[in-house]
Design a binder for these strands. Structure first.
Lengths: 91, 91
DNA sequence: AGTCGTTACATATTATAGTTGATAAACTTG
DNA sequence: CAAGTTTATCAACTATAATATGTAACGACT
């Protein structure tokens, strides 16, 4: 299950349904057209606040952006989050 | 509408409903107890992948973590996303 | 073919998400 | 009440999300 792809598909579908271009949504949301393009193509892992603000600009519920859309899932696994970082404290 | 607080409330409620400690959820999810504590208290702005992985560890749908929970919204506005960054290119 | 509108691609930078370890504070239990 | 358990808090670090800018590629239309 790839959340980036799911959210991307939902976003693209909802935007197109409203006959909006990415540029128009960009202006409404304050995100750049280039960023929205990446999100729609599943290349970005947005935060929940970003999700909400995009939904707001689209006048839809943020839930609509994360709901399963009935598309067949690919066999590729969900991209994982970041790996291990610093020790958190100077030893 | 503060997404961080909403997700935090949903997470805490669902976790407690399953009688899980943050430590146990931490072990199941691979996130640290400290991080989950921050998320539950609305102090973190997780990405959609993080959202999904927490939901997976809780054996609930990720949608359950973002659904409105009927709590009265505070008058404080949604925290905004990040501000302007670099110029993107050496001029 | 040329033009226009739209989307995709590239790059460098900054802000912040997520990690880690330590530990204080709060809560629960016997 | 003391001890054990759970959650909250702090701080420093690394990885990455988001920004800004430029522009290539694509599709539609004349």
């Amino acid at each position: 299950m790839d959340m980036r792809k799911l959210v991307g598909r939902n976003l693209a579908r909802l935007r197109q349904a409203q006959k909006l271009t990415q540029e128009e949504l960009a202006m409404r949301s304050g995100f750049s057209q280039q960023y929205l393009s990446d999100v729609e193509r599943g290349l970005k892992n947005p935060t929940i606040i970003t999700l909400y603000e995009i939904a707001l600009a689209l006048s839809v519920s943020h839930v609509a952006l994360v709901e399963p859309d009935g598309m067949a899932e690919e066999t590729a696994p969900q991209p994982k989050r970041r790996r291990a970082a610093g020790t958190g404290r100077i030893k």
